[in-house]
Computed example of a mutant assay.
Amino acid sequence: MKRANLFLAAALGVSALGTAVVLPAAPTLAQGTTQRIATTKVDVATVATGHRSSKIVGAKVVNDQNDTVGTVDDLIISPRDSVPYAILSVGGFLGVGDRLVAIPYSALQITDDKIELPGGNKDALKNQPAFHYAKS
Score class of each variant (00 low, 15 high):
residue 85 Y to G: 13
residue 80 R to Q: 14
residue 135 K to D: 01
residue 19 T to W: 11
residue 52 R to M: 03
residue 26 A to N: 14
residue 75 L to W: 01
residue 43 D to C: 07
residue 98 D to E: 14
residue 13 G to K: 01
residue 4 A to K: 12
residue 131 F to N: 01
residue 107 A to Q: 13
residue 11 A to W: 01
residue 33 T to K: 12
residue 31 Q to S: 10
residue 123 D to H: 05
residue 77 I to V: 15
residue 121 N to C: 06
residue 69 V to Y: 07
residue 36 R to M: 12
residue 9 A to V: 04
residue 35 Q to H: 09
residue 107 A to T: 08
residue 136 S to I: 00
residue 58 G to P: 14
residue 121 N to I: 00
residue 41 K to I: 01
residue 132 H to R: 15
residue 90 V to S: 11
residue 1 M to L: 02
residue 28 T to P: 12
residue 21 V to C: 11
residue 96 V to A: 06
residue 36 R to A: 14
residue 41 K to A: 09
residue 4 A to L: 11
residue 67 D to H: 12
residue 106 S to W: 00
residue 78 S to G: 10
residue 128 Q to N: 13
residue 74 D to N: 15
residue 13 G to M: 00
residue 80 R to P: 12
residue 113 D to A: 06
residue 39 T to A: 14
residue 33 T to I: 03
residue 108 L to V: 01
residue 127 N to R: 13
residue 18 G to N: 06
residue 8 L to V: 09
residue 38 A to Y: 07
residue 101 V to S: 04
residue 127 N to M: 05
residue 59 A to W: 04
residue 99 R to N: 13
residue 37 I to M: 12
residue 18 G to M: 07
residue 135 K to R: 12
residue 56 I to R: 13
residue 51 H to E: 00
residue 117 L to W: 01
residue 109 Q to C: 01
residue 17 L to W: 07
residue 47 V to G: 07
residue 96 V to F: 10
residue 4 A to I: 05
residue 27 P to A: 03
residue 75 L to M: 13
residue 118 P to D: 01
residue 56 I to W: 02
residue 134 A to V: 03
residue 30 A to S: 11
residue 126 K to P: 05
residue 63 N to T: 03
residue 57 V to P: 15
residue 97 G to H: 10
residue 103 I to L: 15
residue 64 D to G: 09
residue 109 Q to T: 09
residue 133 Y to N: 09
residue 76 I to S: 12
residue 77 I to A: 10
residue 28 T to L: 11
residue 102 A to Q: 13
residue 26 A to I: 03
residue 95 G to M: 12
residue 75 L to T: 07
residue 77 I to N: 05
residue 123 D to E: 07
residue 24 P to D: 01
residue 29 L to I: 06
residue 60 K to M: 03
residue 39 T to E: 08
residue 123 D to Y: 00
residue 112 D to R: 11
residue 86 A to D: 02
residue 74 D to Q: 15
residue 59 A to M: 06
residue 130 A to R: 14
residue 46 T to G: 11
residue 17 L to M: 06
residue 50 G to S: 00
residue 52 R to Q: 08
residue 20 A to Q: 03
residue 18 G to C: 12
residue 57 V to H: 09
